[in-house]
């Protein structure tokens, strides 16, 4: 069967189907669409008028709080940390002490061990070599 034959047969079959199911009149479909368009009212806003300023205020407070918290972290040193650093500098002035910012950013690396006793283990074999 050639392409042309196939096309003719498909065309005839679909044309027969279209004849058996004729379309509704254009005016009927078009008028129905126009009626549906007229029936579509713009949806009234259900949002209360105070909601927008309230959200704006909450957002502003959140920004200010975050800014303040970040500023406190980077700019100042808590009093207890500062006192520890001062004491440490007085006890060993020759040592290269970290700055306050370093101590804040890496507290476990630079903070002086206050109140923690580090156990010292002796190597029992070490002396045998001496």
């Amino acid at each position: 069967m050639t392409d042309r034959d196939l096309q003719r047969r498909v065309d005839e079959a679909l044309a027969q189907r279209d004849r058996q199911q004729p379309p509704p009149a254009f005016a009927v479909s078009w008028q129905a669409a126009l009626r549906a368009a007229a029936a579509r009212q713009p949806r009234p806003s259900v949002r209360p008028s105070w909601i927008r300023p309230a959200f704006a205020a909450a957002a502003a407070i959140a920004v200010m709080a975050t800014w303040s918290w970040l500023g406190g972290r980077s700019g100042s040193v808590p009093e207890s940390d500062a006192a520890d650093l001062r004491l440490a500098r007085e006890l060993s002035p020759a040592r290269q002490w970290p700055t306050a910012t370093d101590a804040l950013l890496r507290p476990y690396q630079y903070a002086p061990p206050t109140g923690i006793e580090v156990p010292v283990f002796e190597n029992p074999f070490e002396e045998s070599y001496l």
């Binding site: 679909l14 189907r17 279209d18 199911q21 004729p22 379309p23 509704p24 254009f26 479909s29 078009w30 129905a32 669409a33 549906a36 368009a37």
Partner: peptide, 28 residues
């Protein structure tokens, strides 16, 4: 219109009511 309805019929696999709704929505 007639061609559009036939095309809608093909897409809806011959469901006439659905094809009419589709065409009406298209016009809307």
């Amino acid at each position: 219109h007639a061609d559009g309805f036939g095309w809608a019929l093909t897409l809806t696999r011959g469901r006439r009511n659905e094809a009419e709704d589709v065409l009406q929505t298209t016009y809307l």
